Amino acid sequence: MKKRYYIAYGSNLNIRQMRMRCPSARIIGTSEIPDYELLFKGSRTGSYLTIEPKKGSRVPVAAWEVTVEDEQALDRYEGFPTFYYKTEMKLPIKGIRSGRIRMRNTFVYIMHENRPFGVPSRFYMATCLEGYRSFGFDETYLLDAIKTSRRMSHERK
Rank of each mutant, 00 (worst) to 15 (best):
A25W: 08
T148S: 08
N14C: 10
F135R: 04
S121C: 06
P120E: 14
V68L: 13
K41G: 01
V119R: 07
E71T: 10
K86S: 08
I110D: 03
R19D: 07
F107C: 00
D70R: 11
F137Y: 07
P23A: 05
E65A: 14
M20N: 15
D75E: 07
D35V: 00
F137G: 00
C128K: 03
R21F: 07
G29H: 08
I33Y: 00
S57C: 12
E113N: 02
S98E: 05
S31P: 11
K41R: 15
E37S: 08
P116S: 03
I33V: 15
E130L: 06
S11D: 12
Y84G: 01
T106I: 01
F40C: 13
S98A: 04
G118K: 02
P60Y: 06
M152L: 14
G95F: 03
E130W: 03
G56Y: 08
M103T: 11
N12D: 09
E52C: 05
I96A: 14
R122F: 03
R151Q: 13
F40G: 10
Y48N: 12
S134E: 12
V66W: 09
R97K: 06
S47Y: 10
D138H: 15
M111Q: 04
S149K: 05
P81S: 06
A62H: 10
V68I: 13
E69H: 08
F117K: 00
R19Y: 02
V119C: 00
K41T: 13
M103G: 13
Q17E: 13
F117S: 02
S121E: 01
V119H: 03
H112N: 09
R19G: 00
R97E: 00
R26F: 02
S149M: 09
P53I: 09
S134L: 04
R150K: 13
Y132M: 07
C128D: 05
I28T: 15
M20G: 14
S24T: 10
E139R: 07
Y109L: 05
F137Q: 05
D75W: 02
R150W: 04
G42I: 13
R104Y: 12
F40A: 14
D138R: 15
Y85C: 02
M111H: 02
A63N: 07
T67E: 08
E52Y: 04
L39P: 00
A126H: 07
M18P: 06
G46N: 11
S57H: 11
S57D: 11
P34D: 14
D75L: 05
H112E: 07
L143S: 04
E37A: 01
R104S: 09
R150M: 06
V119M: 03
F40P: 06
T82M: 08
A145V: 00
N114I: 04
R16K: 15
E88D: 14
C22D: 12
L143E: 12
R150S: 09
F117Y: 15
E52Q: 12
T82Y: 09
A63D: 09
